[in-house]
Amino acid sequence: MQDSRLPPFTTALLHPRYLFNWLGLSLLWLLVTLLPWRGQMVLGRGLGRLSMRILNSRVKIARRNLELALPELNETERERTLIANFESVGCAVFETGMAWFWPHWRMRAITRMEGTEHVDDAVAKGQGMLLLSAHFLTLELNARQFGLYRPGVGVYRPNTNAVLEYAQVQGRCRSNKYLVNRLNIKGMLKALRQGDALWYAPDHDYGRHASVFVPFFAVEQAATITGTATLARVKKTVTLPCFTLREKDGYRLLIQPAMSNFPIGDDVADAIASNKVIEAAIRLAPEQYMWLHRRFKTTPEGVPYRY
């Protein structure tokens, strides 16, 4: 559970068992380096539609999530959103390559930043920043783009594949300081106490441990971790919602004002507050959210399994 600084390259990474990993990363690097952004998005949407024929279980999960979360949509609207969502999944493959491999100048060319004054205000006051984010399919770009303005610290899950772990740490640290294992709470607290910006996405279903059941979209009892409030309680820390949205000509890095009266010390009320912020952001571009995850799998006693 140590902090992940830039890992050294070792000869062990050249073992033959990693051949296809290196080939895949090399192909991704080649495509995102040579192709223009619009071309990558065209290919991404096509790849996403193709994936719907292969990832049948994920299609079922995403469709079910849309039924649970957005019951106000009729069947035609949900299917349209589902297709757009998988197109976004395909685009995310290229966006990961952009985040990991593009130079700063090329990233800045497609990034429009909104709300950087909230970062400036926190820095001027010597405050740590908890960047409340979510699992948008543009999440790899989110931390990379924020780091272009002010390098921060990312929270992540280490990859068990040594080559992919090397690539993701190198890529995610291109414009940021270092990564902290999502289990390393002390490391997260330390970053905030030092006045760093800490990227944090609490919107997945992590089970019953340290969770409460509160509303998220139309699901009245969605398991939601209480870690957001725990981190936000660090002295001189402000919580800044931070998201990246894909637009017609690039991306908008949206940094919102600090959450007021947060946290208040009530786990349920604080989880409701953070869920409302995340939900509002997702509604700006619901097709760009990671609906492939079983967000509502954990249920209270007496409530049947939702999938």
Rank of each mutant, 00 (worst) to 15 (best):
M41W: 06
E140Y: 14
R233S: 15
G154P: 08
K186A: 15
T81G: 06
R17V: 09
S88L: 04
Y251D: 00
Y18L: 13
W199K: 09
V93T: 11
A12C: 04
F146S: 10
W37C: 03
F94W: 01
S4L: 13
Y149V: 04
R233D: 12
P263V: 13
P202R: 14
A197N: 01
G24Q: 10
V163Q: 08
I54K: 07
T237A: 11
R246C: 10
Y307W: 14
L6V: 09
L34Q: 03
Q2K: 13
A12Y: 08
L132Y: 05
G126W: 04
R144E: 15
T160M: 11
T10W: 08
V153S: 05
L189R: 05
V42I: 07
I278E: 10
D3Y: 06
S211D: 02
N74M: 06
N181L: 01
Q288F: 01
E95Q: 13
T226Q: 05
M1Q: 07
Q145E: 14
R233M: 03
P16R: 08
A69K: 04
T239H: 04
W105D: 15
S4W: 14
E79I: 06
A201S: 07
K190P: 08
R80E: 15
P8E: 06
Y307A: 10
R233N: 13
L284Y: 11
